[in-house]
């Protein structure tokens, strides 16, 4: 358990791919005592990635456990640790502790239609779940993906869109905030597209990830459309250091985002103070 509790394994960078101008995706192999070791996880879990000598940050696992091998993380440069990550090269070592957090309730999601709603880098945790669902296509019902960003070049993981569109009974609805040259998809904020599409609840679960302001409106719209709180799933982000429920900073009420989350149903969120 040491690799969870403060002592990291090595994550060796195999390749780095540009996701947007400020976000890079790292494909890493996990090593223990100099040997590559398997790393199993669930969609929606995260890891504490570190740059030795700089610090540690929680980052969602964006690859899917249905495709064993390298593990993928998409990192947006916002501060000290993420900047240091952006200066790394293939072959370099990060530290890794994980997988951490609860992950999405994939077993309970089986048999359901799923509406994925994401904004910006919020697609990172959802990408692993979407690929999990599509890799187990017959276990799930209809799939709709609403994804938006401020501008076309800020859409993350654009190389996935054609594959997702080609999957059976799967639709991808892309949107950007304002008109842009060469863009012929939807224009408008994510919540507006959610309203416009008006997918009825029925047997459908909604899974939403994105900036807090987007989530706020999306949750309101889903409630207005008749979605039950148990059928709306989202993730919370809080500053954290240990990722294992001990450093004491990621709690909202009695829940610790690192161990009780980061994935919550809206029905659970209604039982804790709305500090997030």
């Amino acid at each position: 358990m040491n690799e969870l509790m403060m002592i990291p394994l090595i994550a060796r960078i195999r390749s780095i791919r540009e996701v947007t101008f400020d976000t890079l995706m790292f494909e890493v192999a996990i090593e223990k005592d100099g040997k590559e070791v398997p790393f199993s996880y669930l969609p929606g879990q995260f890891a504490e990635l570190s740059v030795f000598g700089v610090g540690e940050s929680p980052i969602s696992i964006t690859s899917t456990c249905t495709r064993p091998g390298l593990v993928e993380f998409a990192v947006r440069e916002v501060g000290l640790v993420t900047e240091a990550m952006h200066n790394m090269r293939p072959g370099d070592n990060m530290g890794i502790r994980g997988p951490l957090g609860n992950g999405f309730p994939v077993d309970e999601m089986k048999g359901k239609d799923i509406l994925f709603i994401a904004g910006g880098i919020g697609l990172a945790p959802l990408r692993g779940l979407i690929n999990y669902v599509l890799d187990n296509r017959s276990d799930f019902g209809a799939v709709d993906i609403i994804y938006g960003a401020r501008a076309p070049n800020l859409l993350c993981f654009d190389w996935e869109f054609d594959t997702w569109k080609a999957a059976p009974d799967t639709r991808v609805h892309l949107t950007i905030d304002a008109p842009a040259a060469g863009w012929n998809g939807s224009v408008g904020f994510v919540p507006a597209i959610v309203k416009e599409l008006a997918l009825p609840p029925g047997n459908r679960l909604a899974v939403a990830c994105g900036p807090p302001i987007m989530i706020k409106y999306v949750l309101e719209d889903l409630a207005a459309a008749g979605y039950r709180d148990e059928d709306v799933i989202t993730t919370l982000e809080m500053k954290m250091k240990c990722g294992v429920g001990k450093c004491g900073r990621c709690n909202i009420g009695a829940k610790y985002i690192c161990v009780d989350g980061p994935v919550f149903r809206l029905s659970e969120l209604k039982t804790i103070p709305s500090e997030y």
């Binding site: 403060m6 570190s50 740059v51 030795f52 000598g53 700089v54 610090g55 540690e56 250091k241 240990c242 001990k246 450093c247 004491g248 900073r249």
Partner: peptide, 10 residues
């Protein structure tokens, strides 16, 4: 009270 912060030094 047991909250802690984590830091690296090179």
């Amino acid at each position: 009270c047991h909250c802690f912060d984590v830091h690296d030094e090179r």
